[in-house]
Amino acid sequence: MDPRFDEFLHVPARLSIVALLAPADWVDFGFLRDTIETSDSALSKQISALASAGYVTVRKDTGGRTRRTSVRLTPEGRRAFQRHAAALERIVTAARIPAPQPATDGEPADDAGRRPSAHSG
């Protein structure tokens, strides 16, 4: 497995959150919840996990009658996301490269894939 593959980030809910945060600065909690189609408590749990890992920052604005919670990727979170996305790209790309064909006439190929000449000796 690619060392840059982040098992922590690859949890579907967390990956979705980080993907939504990547193009923006601050994103409202409600937008994340509605887009991922999850509950407040489930989203809070994942955001807390991401915050504990240092990947996101949470801000709560208490001005006025409503409380507004916003989330933002930290620089470390952004780097981790980019590394993980690059690791996924490599996995996909590696699967597209055809494997070298094995020898089919019973003669073993050398390290360079060459077979012994029929007229050797």
């Binding site: 690859h10 579907p12 979705s16 994103v27 790209e89």
Partner: peptide
């Protein structure tokens, strides 16, 4: 996973 990432980034 990559498709999901691109779709959600576009949504933002």
């Amino acid at each position: 996973s990559l498709d999901t990432i691109h779709r959600l980034q576009d949504r933002t």
